[in-house]
Design a protein around this nucleic acid. Structure first.
Lengths: 117, 117
DNA sequence: CTGCTCGCTCACCTCAGGGTAACTCCCCAC
DNA sequence: GTGGGGAGTTACCCTGAGGTGAGCGAGCAG
């Protein structure tokens, strides 16, 4: 992503939001985070049901990206039938906390729109 | 966008974050918000310089969307050469405040990555 | 007359992120 | 033997957000 062009800034980021946006930039990532925040240790199929509309392919790739970004943890129990559980990492929890004010803004906005359509 | 499927939820949104994501979803929107937050009443060309990489077309369309979303205000002074100033609305200021924790998360993360590459 | 500034608009094109659907592997129940 | 759950993978397709480059309208400087 780009940067606001000011002296003293080294790499391509300045305000920190763009860094965060890279992590939550996927179409469904905030919803996945939210689902894992409501209750840790969700299973794959459970997430698929909780985020209706998402396809298995995209859920899988989003989860792998979020794992690579260090915000979710994948634990695979070697059983049959397979069982895999996803949970937020410490960093993922902090990310979710950081998203809460944004969620509050969205909720408030939704309220306002409902009252004045 | 989609919704976490739980009873008691009416429209397509639940956690509020998705509502917010619709507003800040454009590629450069958070950077525009940030630029307007640092100093209100920025001119078009000024924003173009502050957000390097953005094209005029995209800057214009982003600004129009954000105006429609009620987060920025456009004031056109009928002069020649034309002068147009953009500023955050009250709601835009609140949105920016809500983004601050996310920015902090991103900055912290950037620090960590620098120390442990 | 030419070129420059400012704030755009228009027509066209690209590409990657996401959607569709089929397939795998291992076991259990019917 | 077939059907289903569970957790994916693979190959292919498609749309729309964003990028490219040009032009405009008014005035002023040289």
């Amino acid at each position: 992503m780009a940067t606001l062009n000011r002296p003293g800034v080294d790499d391509g980021h300045i305000c920190g939001i763009d860094t965060a946006m890279e992590v939550i930039g996927g179409k469904w990532k905030v919803l996945i985070l939210w689902a894992l925040h409501e209750q840790p240790h969700r299973r794959f199929g459970e997430l698929r049901r909780l985020v209706p509309g998402i396809t298995e392919k995209v859920l899988a790739s989003h989860l792998r990206e979020m794992e690579a970004d260090g915000v979710v943890d994948r634990v695979s129990y070697e059983e049959v039938p397979p069982r895999v559980e996803y949970a937020l990492t410490k960093d993922g929890i902090r990310l979710n906390d950081a998203l809460e004010p944004l969620a509050a803004w969205g909720r408030e906005r939704k309220e306002d729109r409902r009252n004045t359509p």
